[in-house]
């Protein structure tokens, strides 16, 4: 399945990369324990990883392996039970909530699987939100530019209920990137989308990376989506079991995804064509 990993990494979990690249995310032995009454759930059991500026990384793993938990910590929405998380060189693992809010505002663009748009709020207002809380001036212009960048220049005044799922997610992406964050974190951004909208979203992420060098981290269950990123981190039961570079990352939209019919091909026994009705009995 993962035959598209490169085989030239020195260590299994520490791929080689140019040394001059800056570390954006530096996670050291992070754990997360949820206390559910008597029961303790160890969602992360000691995760260490570095993500460099300009990387596009996908995080994969079975359901319940701790992907979302890790992403929430990376996005400063949650804090680790132990371990250190340095974001852009700043230790945020023990920061007070007030400062975290500022970091979320300035440095992180978070994209959710369920879009998380405000009800009854126009696309433009949605995208202005981080600018409002950041006290940024020239909001309208910046928000419009961000929406144009995701191809929604014609949908500024649309409400979420007037947009397709893919368009809603693009509004969410515009909202994530409007403050020019250090990185974009996306937890299953294509999870609720059909493959065409998913490809569009991937195109946006890739071009953001190509043109602005945007560091991007994804969670995905879809190997096809993961093939569009440069590096894949595999989680299982709260630990990293693999961290590899993708040999030849796909460019979204360039290679047609194998159609469902093609993917389904070979799934069936030989089809039965013609013949008589009685033969089914």
């Amino acid at each position: 399945m993962f035959n598209w990993f490169s085989k030239n990494g020195k260590h299994k979990t520490e791929p080689e990369r140019p040394t001059e690249r800056r570390v954006v995310i530096d996670v050291q032995d992070v754990t997360k324990v949820y206390k559910m009454g008597e029961v303790e759930v160890h969602a992360l059991r000691g995760v260490s990883l570095q993500i460099y500026e300009g990387e596009v990384v996908s995080i994969m793993g079975p359901s319940g392996s701790g992907k979302s938990t890790l992403m929430n910590i990376l996005g400063c929405l949650d804090q680790p039970s132990s371990g250190i998380y340095r974001l852009d060189g700043v230790d945020v693992s023990v920061m007070p909530e007030q400062d975290l809010a500022r970091i979320r505002n300035k440095k992180i663009g978070f994209v959710f699987q369920s879009f998380n748009l405000l009800k009854r709020t126009s696309a433009l207002r949605q995208v202005e939100l981080p600018l409002i809380y950041g006290g940024t001036s020239g909001r309208g212009k910046k928000a419009r530019a961000a929406l144009e960048a995701v191809g929604l220049g014609q949908r500024l005044d649309h409400l979420p209920s007037e947009l397709s799922g893919g368009q809603q997610q693009r509004v969410a992406i515009a909202r994530a990137l409007v403050n020019e964050p250090a990185m974009i974190l996306a937890d299953e951004p294509t999870g609720n989308l059909d493959s065409r909208s998913g490809t569009e979203v991937m195109q946006i992420f890739q071009s953001l990376n190509r043109e602005k060098g945007m560091t991007t981290v994804f969670v995905t269950h879809d190997p096809w989506i993961a093939r569009h990123t440069q590096r894949v981190i595999m989680l299982r039961d709260g630990i990293i079991i693999a961290d590899r570079e993708v040999a030849n990352p796909l460019i979204a939209g360039e290679v047609e995804r194998p159609s469902e019919a093609e993917e389904l091909e070979g799934l069936f026994r030989d089809a039965y064509y013609g013949g008589k009705k009685e033969e089914y009995n």
Binding site: A101, R104, K106, Y133
Partner: peptide
Amino acid sequence: TREIGLRKAVGARGLD
């Protein structure tokens, strides 16, 4: 609640 969460996720402080 989710709106509050979202606002906080994009940088709203408790005071806001």
